[in-house]
Design a protein around this nucleic acid. Sequence first.
DNA 1: CGTCTCCGCTTAAACGTTTAAACCCCGTTG
DNA 2: CAACGGGGTTTAAACGTTTAAGCGGAGACG
Lengths: 341, 341
Amino acid sequence: MPTIKDVAKEASVSVATVSYVLNNSGSVSAGTRQRVLRAVEKLGYRPSVLAKGLQANESRMIGYSWHPVLPNQFDPILDKFIKSVADAAGRHDYHVLTFPCPKPYNEISVYREMVERDRVDGFILSNTNLDDRRIRYLLDVGFPFVAFGRSNPEWNFHWVDVDGSNGVELAVAHLLELGHQRIACLAWPEDSLTGQYRLAGYGKAMASAGLRVDQGWITRSQNDYEEAYRAAQPWLALPSNQRPTAVVALSDLMAIGVMNATADAGLEVGPDLAVVGFDDAPITDYLRPPLTSLRQPIAGVGERLVSMLIDLLHGETPSPAQVLLKPRLIVRDSTALSVRS
Amino acid sequence: MPTIKDVAKEASVSVATVSYVLNNSGSVSAGTRQRVLRAVEKLGYRPSVLAKGLQANESRMIGYSWHPVLPNQFDPILDKFIKSVADAAGRHDYHVLTFPCPKPYNEISVYREMVERDRVDGFILSNTNLDDRRIRYLLDVGFPFVAFGRSNPEWNFHWVDVDGSNGVELAVAHLLELGHQRIACLAWPEDSLTGQYRLAGYGKAMASAGLRVDQGWITRSQNDYEEAYRAAQPWLALPSNQRPTAVVALSDLMAIGVMNATADAGLEVGPDLAVVGFDDAPITDYLRPPLTSLRQPIAGVGERLVSMLIDLLHGETPSPAQVLLKPRLIVRDSTALSVRS
DNA sequence: CGTCTCCGCTTAAACGTTTAAACCCCGTTG
DNA sequence: CAACGGGGTTTAAACGTTTAAGCGGAGACG
């Protein structure tokens, strides 16, 4: 690979001049500039990103860590998310370094390693939770990062999130419009922050419709198919005049559990029990019936996150400091009142 | 961040000595070694990976490019694959740089950029095809890489692949064992190399069972739900004594299309038409009925690829140069002869 | 007692950039 | 006409490492 020295020799100038030409700094005469550019062209020179980085003390890398996906779960938006981040980063001449997270979930040692060895210039976090140790650490050491998801509200950091509360409100509103009154919610364990937001939307929508929420209509379950399946059974066993006529599940995975439990109970998803999921996994369209679900604007999230982080890396303060994007309800037949022929 | 100079000062030695201690090279007295290590500890020093890289002319990065997933498709193993690669790489002190591929599929400009600017030490390719331009380019410039998937058989490079032919053979064998004779195959377009291998397994298994293959039993379709759905309809419209009793689809996505077409034709998946998919997507377990599918040993693939690439980076020749791993048939109810109660 | 060898350490060059500072030349300006 | 200013270029230091080469000193050996 040719270096800047080779170019300098070829163009009969000093390396400094070559550097000035390439960075449009300093003052270089038109003639010299031409000679240099021709030499660059001829030799096919590309500046070494390593040397540049050492000099500027930056790696032009953004770190993103894989969080472990539990055996029976799937994360339907993970790959879209990372891809959108990589896309957006590329447009700013940054790249994404994806590293695995070790077992103990919020372990920060890997992050520390990346920070202290100058592997990355900043991080993008996802799957944040309340009192996230990673966020705490990065705030403490003052290292640039942005997060997909919120955390401890007392911490001041930059994030983008999808408004889960609004999403579930949309779902409930849609169900209300169809005439449903007994609407249940299959929620997540209390320690899930995202779960709290989404569940809040349920409460809000029901309250503003003036509907009393039967406590039996809220069931909590891990984000797990089997558990969701079992969680739905008590509802399905109720006499038809007490049974919920609709369920909002906080994830597509759980919604599928509810759908299958419904079918196995001899009832029909849609007419007997409307089901709404969350995430709009690629599979939703192909389920029987296709699953109504909330689509997160993932590409937008990646885009915003990256531009916020780039701002931070340039020493600017991103504005706004926090962004809450709205999901979109994709209506399919799992909330249809009658079976489509 | 403390540098090696700070450590040297703290330990009252030269930077060279510090370096020798840290790399276990040169000869250093026990006392000095202790002093240096204490200084390292005290200052919390970590060598800069950039400076090291510049010196050694390596980035300790492995490049992997996202290939575009078409709108209505999904790649059920992509995230598992990248994660396994990142895991394996981490164990060798390498990291994975994931970069987006531009529109025109096999475009090599991004790869060239990475190569010429020393962004990565080697590549891992996936979704290879016959006469893959990326492989051709990397072979031409002699840049280290390994591929998940085969390509032009005349090119000599290192790859790991899952034996799609064997996979489909397993599927057909399973169907034969259940007594099926009229077994159809929903294949991919002819230009798909992976599709060719998988289809070959079908032919082989049928031949070795001494069964004639009706040409109507092989239908080609893009890897697309809708197209698979439509492709299955002619089969389903046949009188029951001519209709295939089983279908092997080359992907889960297409298998789902076949399943839904079957149900819509008023037939029952399993008893009336056994269906087998390929990939064992996370969703297969939750379909109705659950889909029998071929599971690729993805973690193993990532592992082998990385260790082969590391060999190459160390100037060693990986042995064996090519690895063909066997998939495993996961039997579920989509190939059950009777409906499970 | 001189020479050789080896140990333990330091000096300095090198990796490929950027950039502050110095330098030279030429045209203004007081 | 001397001093100044500025455009165009070079020199050299710096970024944080590694490593070949050099260099004292001590022990071994003739």
